[in-house]
Amino acid sequence: MAERTPGWVYAVYLALALAGAGLPLALAWEGFVGWLAQARSMTSLAVTLQVLASGILQGGLYAVIAMGLTMIFGVMRIINVAHGEFLMVGAYMAFVFFMMLLPEELHSLFTSNLGMAILGVGVFLLICLPLMFLFGMGVQRLLLNPVVGGPELTPLLITFGLSLILINTFISVFSSDFRAIPYMSGALVVGNLALGYPQVISVAVSAAVTGGVFGFLKFSRLGKAVRATAQNADVAMVCGVNVERIYLYTFGFGTALAATGGVLISIQLAFSPEIGGIYILRSFAIIILGGRGNYLGALAGGILLGVIEGFISFFVSQGSQLQELAAYTLLVFMLLVRPQGLLGGIADE
C-alpha cells in the first residue's frame, strides 16, 4: 500500500468497474440492440455533458455521506448501520427548522436568490451540525463505548437496533408521510446545461465540507491523532493519544457528516423516516468501491457511483429500476475483484 500506484492502473480499474456494473445490466433488458439504438438516438455531446454533470452533483452528496461512514469504520472498525438514519434525522431537523420554527414570512428568504439560499443552508447547518455532533458523541459514549474493540458483530447489532428505534420514533412523531421543504426551485442554465439550484447548492456545501474534513485530517493535530488512531489504536494509545476521546469525536464527526447529507437531501428531494436505507446501501457500495477507511476513496467512489447511476438510468432502458442494482453489483464486484477498493483501504493491512 505504501508504494504509489500509477495512474493508469486506476484508469483500468475504473473501466473495469464501469464495464462490470454497466454491461450486464444493459444486456439484461430488452436486448443489446434495442439499447444501442436508443442510446444512439439520444447521445450528443451536450446530453452526455448534462448527464455527467448531474451525476457529479449527485455523487458529491453521496461522497459526504460515505465519508462519515468511512471515518467511523476507519477509526473505530464499527460498521454503523444507523448511518442512514442519522442522515434522516438531519433531514427532519431541517424540516422542523424550516417548516415549524421559521416564520412563514421568512420562507421567501430561501427562495428569493441563490446567495440567500446558500446563506440559509449555511446558517441551518451551523445550528444542526453541532447538535448532531453532540448526538453522535452521546451514542458513542452510551451505546458503543462499552463494546468497541470487542467482536465486530456487537456494535453492528447495536447500531442496527438504533436504526430501528430511530425509524420507529420518527414514524410515530412525524408519521411515515413523505415531507418536502419548499426550497428554492429552478435551475442555473449554462448553454445547454441545466443545473438545479438545490443541487448546485448541495454540491457547493458538499465540497466545502469535504475540503474541511480533508484539511482537518491533514493539518490539525487532532486530525493527525484521528488518522493515527485509525492506523493503529494501540500504538496511538501508548503514544499519548486519548483514544477514547478520539472515538467520541470521530463518531460525532461521522454523525454530523451524515446529517449534512440529510440536510442537503431535504432541500432537493422528498423524504420519509424510511429513506435511510436508500443511502446506507449506496454508502456501503461507495466505501467498498473507494477502499474502507479511505477518505479520498470515499470522495472518488461517491462521484463515481453518482456518475454510474446517472449513466445507467439515462442510457439503459428501464434504468430507474436498475440504479439500486448497480450499487449492489458494484459492491459485490469490488469485493470479488479488488476487496481493498480502488484506492486501497484497511482491508489490505
Binding site: S41, M42, S44, V47, Q50, V51, S54, Q58, F178, G196, Q199, L269, A270, F271, I275, I278, E309, G310, S313, F314, S317, Q318, G319, S320, Q321, Q323, E324
Partner: peptide, 21 residues
C-alpha cells in the same frame, strides 16, 4: 415508456432522458 420503483424520489436522470428524447 419507463417504470420507476415505489421508493423513488429522485427523477432527474429519468427526466434528462425525457429531455434528450
Amino acid at each position: 415508456k419507463e417504470e420507476y420503483p415505489r421508493t423513488q424520489t429522485d427523477f432527474r436522470p429519468l427526466l434528462l432522458k425525457v429531455k434528450a428524447l
